[in-house]
């Protein structure tokens, strides 16, 4: 298997996903099959093909530098779990 159970646990932690040993082992199997497919593609010679960063062959549309957004703080904070004095409140991050 190309992905170990420990790697799954590590990635899950980075993504703030809860997992346990049984689940990690299960997903290690699934993810390994995906990685094996990628590995199979890696064996194809692509030296003369320009890499793509995006599945569509397009370019970024650029906009002019103009302020177009209005202040909608009231609307946004009405649906926020907590806000005070114009700030969004979150559980304290530093000790």
């Amino acid at each position: 298997m190309s992905i170990s159970s420990d790697q799954v646990t590590y990635i899950a932690h980075l993504a703030r996903l809860r997992t346990d040993e049984e689940k990690s082992a299960y997903f290690a199997g699934h993810l390994s099959r995906i990685m094996d497919l990628v590995e199979q593609m890696n064996r194809i010679d692509t030296d003369h093909i320009e890499p793509m960063a995006h599945p569509q062959d397009g370019a970024l549309r650029l906009r002019d530098d103009e302020v177009t957004a209005e202040n909608r703080r009231e609307d946004y904070q009405a649906i926020a779990p907590a806000a005070d004095q114009g700030l969004y409140l979150v559980p304290r991050v530093i000790e």
Binding site: R63, D65, E66, V67, T68, A69, E70, N71, R72, R73, Y76, Q77, Q85, G86, L87, Y88
Partner: peptide, 27 residues
């Protein structure tokens, strides 16, 4: 030194009241 943000039309002016220049993309 731009007037608006890199990916949205919210203002970049310094010193505004909190979150008054935070549009849907910013939040």
């Amino acid at each position: 030194q731009t007037k608006s943000k890199i990916f949205s039309g919210a203002s970049t002016a310094y010193g505004a009241e909190p979150n008054t220049q935070a549009c849907d993309v910013s939040i």
